[in-house]
Design a protein around this nucleic acid. Structure first.
Length: 266
DNA sequence: ATTGTGGCCTGCCCGC
DNA sequence: TGCGGGCAGGCCACAA
């Protein structure tokens, strides 16, 4: 599913749409528009403007707008992809292989399309409609981004909490961009039990988790997705730990299906 | 405030 | 071969 890794790849793809005037907006699915936004409101906000910047905070993709010849001043379009949303620019997909979604070329799943001058478009295609589009989303609600979080910031995000460390990692207000697969992979690499109270981690464990969070995201980005982790294929019945061969255990932690190694994750 | 739970969405997979 | 019940998880509303 799209986590920060996939959204970052989407962001890079979205840069192809920069500095091209939006000539039309097609938003056939009212449910997909969030925060009271309507199709008319979205069209009014962006038609005649161009996207000036493609930014990302966690799993939120942000497209800034401005009138031609101006630096800014237009609203910001926020795109969320849920777990099955894909971004397409000029018919090119940002991700070839998206777990739990469908790769079928099905235009009926296009929830919002921005048509650009000279042909071409930027569209969000989401079979399960778990994503959404919003104007000027509150960026302040998101914690530091996992791609750049500092050790001290991770420490602060975990300190003093009785919630499972995995739940804290998945809380976008604490750390932005960690999804279920990255959380399981990083905790597995760091040898930390996902169910441990977040505040119970020692300083050394937090440093270790920080290191593995960062390297996990970097590596999986190079490999092409959040489903390319070392432990990914062990997240199934009968799966064994790639480190020590111990049968993996499946639990619900932080409300999410969680796979971990009972031997080396402590 | 913090933490946990349930529901939303629907294509796909599995077993019958 | 067709059918139907679970399943997947990001996000939000709500409860305690």
């Amino acid at each position: 599913m799209p986590e920060s890794i996939e959204i970052e790849l989407y962001r890079r793809l979205a840069e192809r749409a920069l500095d091209r005037r939006v000539v039309e907006v097609d938003a056939p699915d009212a449910w997909f528009l969030k925060g009271g936004l309507t199709g008319e409101g979205l069209a009014h906000a962006v038609v005649g403007r161009r996207f000036t910047d493609a930014r990302r905070i966690g799993k939120l993709l942000l497209l800034d707008t401005a009138l031609p010849g101006q630096e800014g001043g237009g609203p910001t379009v926020g795109l969320r992809f849920g777990m099955t949303g894909r971004l397409l620019v000029d018919g090119v997909a940002g991700i070839d292989d998206l777990q739990y979604s469908s790769m079928r070329d099905e235009p009926a799943w296009d929830r919002v399309t921005f048509r650009l001058e000279g042909g071409g478009d930027l569209r969000i295609r989401d079979p399960r409609r778990l994503g959404g589009v919003q104007l000027d989303p509150d960026e302040g609600r998101l914690g530091p981004d996992v791609l750049s979080i500092a050790p001290a910031a991770l420490r602060d995000a975990l300190a003093g909490s009785t919630a499972p460390v995995k739940a804290r990692l998945l809380d976008q207000a604490r750390v932005a961009g960690v999804g279920n697969l990255i959380a399981d992979e990083a905790l597995w690499r760091a040898g930390v039990d996902p169910a441990r109270p977040a505040g119970s981690l020692t300083a050394a464990e937090v440093r270790r988790l920080h290191k593995h969070l960062r390297t996990t995201v970097d590596e999986l980005m190079l490999r092409g997705g959040s489903h390319t982790g070392d432990v990914y294929h062990s997240r199934a019945a009968g799966g064994t730990c790639p480190k020590d061969g111990t049968p993996m255990i499946r639990r619900t932690v932080g409300g999410r299906t969680t796979w971990s190694c009972p031997r080396h994750q402590r």
